[in-house]
Write a protein that binds this DNA or RNA. Structure first.
Ligand SMILES: [Fe+2]
Ligand SMILES: [Fe+2]
Ligand SMILES: [Fe+2]
Ligand SMILES: [Fe+2]
Lengths: 214, 214
DNA sequence: GCCAAACTTTCGGCAAACCGAAACCTCGCT
DNA sequence: AGCGAGGTTTCGGTTTGCCGAAAGTTTGGC
């Protein structure tokens, strides 16, 4: 019924994350890859999550969160992002260093401590990578976004978020002073011009990590 | 070899805690009671801890930490007490509210985050209950102490620590403005006179939670 | 010195997560 | 329609940590 182990939270969070910036549903094998787990482990957990009413699943089909599952998932994402924001804002971490610590703490911090952190930070709307922090009721403020790699040449916009999956990309972009809020024009593939006229070459990996206004 | 699950940490910590303010060794059954676990579970974990060289144990005998075990235990205690100090010092918790949260976080915080917290707090030597915070090398500064319940009438001294086992006792003492550092004279059993001349009646439960200078 | 109470260990079992190998579907392509 | 590749599930097995019941050990009191 109230099935909320750390493992289950990770499955829910990952299912949620997959649909946050794209629309297709995640498959069991993709989930296995993302979680670094064998496909058979996914099958097993999927059965438990479905039995608890947190996801829907037809055999051999993809996975989808129920309303209850989405609420549970956004709660975990909320914890994760508030913790990341706190680590950068108060504890002297750089934005490429926070993900792993948050990955662990998100499962052990109490609601009370989380809200104390939230209040100290002034109720931030975004984490250091530009990801929206879900509200306690599960609501998420998410602007229309486009992967930089998919943007057309001459596209102008603002950087909305940068995936924190690859710390090397984050360090590279920090060195180039590119982050959420950076305004740019795509001059040529992988070449952006910033507001101050400086141009920057972004690596393909970075272009696949940067989401910009549509 | 490097056996460090959260469960094992709790066993080590509890074995350590038992000898921190008294000298006798803990028995398996006492450990079971403290951990809220069946005696057979203790036997099992004890075998693993002994096999890992963290405790010594002769069958049917009491338990003792090895040097390696004590180092592991003090590391956990250090985490626990720094977290408690942080929750009170920065996050708006009262001293009767921190123990349970610390009990969980002590197993998931990284060394790096712990040291960041430590630095923010100014490297405190004691937690909110007056318990000494072990150094990173396992060293503990521990003054000679005496349970208030065991002190003789007319004994004068300073409150050193108050066990955080019973939150009700902590709230009661906070209301009476008694805490680590409070100077007193034991006027009669369960009756102490404070430095300002006011006298206080402490409950038997409190007298068994308060440790004072010898 | 013996014996029963009290404590400790052994034993079989359970639940959560994980795995690999083997069986099983699906779907696209011919 | 048929077939096979690739994705999914089933199955048996592992580890960690827990349990209760039963068996074994220690020890204090008579
Ligand atoms: Fe993250
Ligand atoms: Fe993030
Ligand atoms: Fe505590
Ligand atoms: Fe404490």
């Amino acid at each position: 019924m109230t099935y909320t182990t750390g493992a289950a939270e990770d499955y829910l969070k990952t299912i949620y994350a997959h649909t946050e910036w794209q629309t297709d549903l995640i498959t069991p094998s993709a989930l296995a890859v993302r979680l670094g787990v064998a496909p058979s482990s996914v099958t097993e957990m999927v059965k438990k999550l479905a039995a608890s009413g947190l996801i829907t699943h037809v055999p051999y089909g993809p996975l989808a969160l129920t309303d209850a599952g989405r609420l549970r998932a956004t709660a975990v994402v909320r914890r994760h992002r508030l913790i990341e924001t706190w680590l950068v804002g108060e504890m002297g971490y750089d934005w490429d260093e926070v993900h792993d610590e948050a990955e662990i703490l998100e499962h052990s911090i109490s609601d009370r401590l989380l809200e104390a952190i939230n209040a100290r930070l002034g109720f931030p709307a975004h984490d250091p990578h530009g990801d929206p922090i879900p509200a306690a009721d599960g609501t998420v403020q998410r602007p229309a976004a486009l992967l930089l790699a998919d943007a057309e040449v001459s596209h102008s916009g603002t950087v909305l978020r940068i995936s924190d999956r690859d710390p090397a990309v984050l360090r590279e972009l920090a060195a180039d002073l590119i982050g959420p809020g950076t305004q740019f024009t795509l001059a040529a593939p992988f070449t952006i011009v910033l507001a101050d006229g400086q141009s920057r070459l972004v690596t393909p990996a970075a272009a696949r990590s940067i989401w910009v206004t549509a």
